Amino acid sequence: MTEIDDVDRQLLRMLREDGRRTFSEMAPAVGLSVAAVKRRVDRLRDSGVIMGFTVQVDHAKLGRGIEAFVELSYTGTTPVGEIVRTAYEVPEVQAVYTIAGDPDALVHVRVRDIEHLQQVIDGLRRAGQVTGTKTLMVLGSWTRDA
């Protein structure tokens, strides 16, 4: 486990807000030199705390403004790889979480509208050894910064 301090947390927050932010922009905000900020970010990358830099997408502007989680239950003998494959092949699926207990998986989807959501759920129900589904619509979201 990598130890991080408040300055590291500030750097992580700033990079999450804008992954293209420069060391020169971040240095005055945390009270360090540009070289010190670079060393800290390099250390966070080298230790695996920062796994990469990415872009945030406004899915609504891409026509996928509805977000939901679908719980999937499978027959008791279904291997985890099959559970992941079932959902992975569906383009609307953003992530698949295999979980302990009932249900077996939680699938994050983004769709155009309710009719599209129904089509995706129907497709998931027909895939693999799915024995049941439950859908949870996202009304809003919040993410904790590092």
Score class of each variant (00 low, 15 high):
D113Q: 06
T78P: 03
T75Y: 15
G81A: 10
Y97T: 08
V37P: 00
A146H: 10
P103H: 00
I99K: 00
P91Q: 13
A87N: 00
F23S: 08
L106M: 06
T2A: 10
R85S: 12
K38R: 15
R20Q: 14
S47H: 04
I50C: 06
K38V: 08
R64M: 11
R112H: 09
V7Q: 14
R85H: 12
L12Q: 01
V111A: 11
S141I: 11
R20E: 07
G19Y: 09
L124R: 03
I99Q: 03
S141C: 14
G48R: 11
Q56D: 09
L106E: 02
G65M: 03
E3C: 08
A29M: 10
R43T: 00
A35L: 11
V96S: 04
G128W: 01
G128D: 09
E3D: 09
I121F: 04
D145A: 08
V93C: 06
V96L: 03
V30T: 03
T77V: 04
R39Q: 13
G52V: 01
P28M: 08
L139W: 15
R85A: 13
R20L: 15
V57R: 10
G123W: 13
P103D: 01
A68T: 01
L15S: 02
A127C: 11
E3S: 11
R43S: 06
F23M: 15
D58Y: 07
R21S: 15
V93M: 05
E115H: 14
P91G: 05
E92V: 14
V130Y: 01
K61T: 05
R43K: 06
R126T: 05
F53A: 01
Q129T: 02
A87V: 01
E89Y: 12
D18G: 13
L117G: 00
I50R: 01
L124F: 03
E92K: 03
M137G: 08
R21E: 10
S141W: 12
A29C: 07
V49E: 00
E17M: 11
Q119H: 11
D145T: 14
V138S: 10
E82G: 06
P28V: 14
M26G: 00
A29H: 05
L12K: 02
D8A: 09
T77C: 07
Q118D: 10
V130E: 11
D145Y: 15
T143F: 15
Q119Y: 12
T135V: 07
R16G: 08
K134R: 15
L44N: 05
D102Q: 07
T98P: 01
Q10S: 14
T54Y: 06
L62N: 03
A35Y: 08
D102H: 12
V138K: 12
M1C: 09
G65W: 05
D8W: 05
K38T: 11
G123E: 12
E17F: 13
A87E: 01
S24G: 12
D46C: 09
Q10V: 06
T78Q: 04
D46L: 14
D46F: 09
R39D: 05
T133K: 02
T78A: 04
V96G: 04
L106Y: 00
G123T: 04
F23N: 06
I4W: 04
V80N: 02
L136Q: 05
G140E: 15
G123F: 12
R64T: 10
R112A: 15
R40E: 04
T2R: 06
V37T: 13
V55L: 07
T98E: 00
H116W: 08
K38F: 08
T75M: 12
G81S: 07
A95V: 02
T54A: 12
G52Y: 05
M51L: 07
